[in-house]
Nucleic acid binder design. Structure first.
Lengths: 207, 207
DNA sequence: TGGGTTACTGACAATTCTGTAAGTAAGCAC
DNA sequence: GTGCTTACTTACAGAATTGTCAGTAACCCA
């Protein structure tokens, strides 16, 4: 009524809407994104959202796109920032695990992968992403192990195992913490050490 | 019209409805269960479903319950049938991986875990399930390794890793198979071998 | 054969959701 | 200031969904 109407720059409005939508996505999945809920939460009317994104599907797509880009950026930043020449990749590895596991990234991605529809299909490029990560790790491994480095597929599988476990972890985390004696943080440490040992070929050769 | 009305025994009708609902759950998640869709698919009217399950929530709950029970039964059967005294647990392990991975079990469970609501909360007892599995494996391990057996937590973590990876696998499988050079079956074999080696303590002691 | 139980149906109610249309006002260029 | 663009709103339409209710008919048992 008396309250003056606020008019944000389009980019800013879009960002605010995407933030709210991503929270809902992480919590309840793509179906949990309800235009009216977002509108109320943001203090706007729901047609405003349609104005910015065209349709609900457009919004979901935009959320997926931004989430994937953000994850990509974070991963690239972490990997690029890592001391690749350093003897052990411990730090790099732990930071990658953190990027994937700690933030809402994994949960959002898990939703998108599990509920994937035509809208989000082309946005998700899990295979390529995995390949890039594995390539970096394998390069590292080769530099470290020389001729004793196993096949590329071995590295790829190890990276796959890590990322799949992290997805599972993102999904099941709440129940694990309620299970007596399981500390999620400890588990991540354990996983890191296991993988590093494996990649360092304490078990020599591909298993 | 002219078609005679069919009247099934309640249990049979419930089972048929649950079957269809579980398919929808695995494919599109709990939100994907639509009374009208199920009714059309089954050639019945949607109030029939409400008659048998009281409400949509009741149906979802029943689906979750049956899926969890079914998984539990399959796992128990496989574990009980396994030659626990045998030197290697390879067969047991592979069959457990199959039960979790091959059927729709993992995908259904992943949905339920990810989308878990008040309705399904008490049905899912992931922690306890995991504990039981880990206990069996640890017993096996102790028998096999004697005094050199690491802490129970080490076994628990390994079992966790396996199940989490399988959840992730169930989610990401379709994209992995499209990724060049990744054969899901090969990956499962690789994982089995890795875990067995680890549990056999090729890496001695907890990592 | 008759009668009771209940699986099942059709029609309707009520809510909720996405999307449209027309109009309002905020900010910017001039 | 004047006027243009566009972020934003109110009101409404249309579709889909769950749930109710009264009634029908299939099966079982006497």
């Amino acid at each position: 009524m008396g309250a003056k109407r606020r008019r944000l720059p389009a980019e800013q409005a879009r960002a605010a809407i995407l933030d709210a939508a991503e929270r809902h996505l992480a919590a309840r999945g793509p179906e949990g994104i309800r235009l009216k809920d977002l509108a109320v939460e943001l203090g706007i009317s729901h047609p405003t959202i349609l104005h910015h994104f065209g349709s609900r599907a457009g919004l979901v797509r935009a959320v997926a796109q931004r989430a994937v880009r953000s994850l990509e950026n974070d991963l690239v930043a972490v990997i690029a920032g890592g001391d690749v020449d350093e003897q052990a990749a411990t730090g790099l590895f732990e930071r990658v695990l953190e990027v994937l596991g700690e933030r809402r990234h994994a949960r959002t991605l898990a939703w998108l992968l599990l509920a994937r529809t035509d809208e989000t299909e082309d946005v998700l490029d899990y295979g390529a992403q995995l390949g890039r990560l594995a390539a970096v790790v394998h390069q590292n491994r080769t530099a470290h192990l020389g001729d004793r480095t196993p096949e590329y597929q071995d590295t790829l599988f190890a990276v796959m195992l890590a990322s799949l476990a992290l997805f599972g972890h993102a999904i099941a985390n709440p129940m694990l913490s309620t299970h007596a004696g399981v500390n999620p943080r400890e588990f991540l440490h354990w996983l890191t050490r296991l993988l590093l040992r494996y990649l360092d070929c304490s078990i020599t050769g591909p298993v």
